[in-house]
Design a protein around this nucleic acid. Sequence first.
DNA 1: CTTGCACTCGTTTTACATCA
DNA 2: GTGATGTAAAACGAGTGCAA
Length: 199
Amino acid sequence: MNHHMALFPQLYPDAFTQATPHHQQGENKPRRRRNRKHTVGTIKKRKLSEEQVKLLEQNFGNEPKLESERKDRLALELGLDPRQVAVWFQNKRSRWKTKKLEEEYSNLKNVHETTMLQKCHLEAQVLKLEEQLLEAKKEIQRLLERADSSSSSQSQPILEDVNPQFLGEFRMEEYDDSDVFYIPETYYINGMEWINLYM
DNA sequence: CTTGCACTCGTTTTACATCA
DNA sequence: GTGATGTAAAACGAGTGCAA
């Protein structure tokens, strides 16, 4: 086995398969040093075959961790160096994890965007309600003063006098005169406790 | 010693742009 | 429109060092 073969066993599947027993016999494998700027002249292929990848994917789907027994069996079945199988699994786990993280990030981002949108809507609503509340308070004040000054001889408040803003989005025609100010016993809005004082 | 992982590298493949 | 060519980005297999 020449230098290239030792360095890139996957490129020489046949040669490597033949060589495999050596490894299994425990021939000491020096850590392969990276051959960074080595231009690998004639080498054309490096990829695992579709079939190999398919089987690897299948196995990965079953169980992403690889016990050495399974590694050896797979390697034998695929005609690869067990180390290649291990590396494939390692890369697969790593890249799968990255993919999952990206997906998770994207989901969280969407959730965040939706939430922020909701927050904006709610804040706008709060502003609107606060404004309505202010108007309501003013109106009540006005009515109280009026009732006071007319020496309470006229007991009925005159609805036409009510500032329409006070009624806000509530439509007059949906109520008959008698229950315009009706609020059920259980009705409760945070911060609206004051209204009971006037009911 | 072995294994998994993070980080990294070098090569190949893919996607896209530009030009004749 | 089409094929050739260039090229940046993505995919891939693998090396290295560290920790458990």
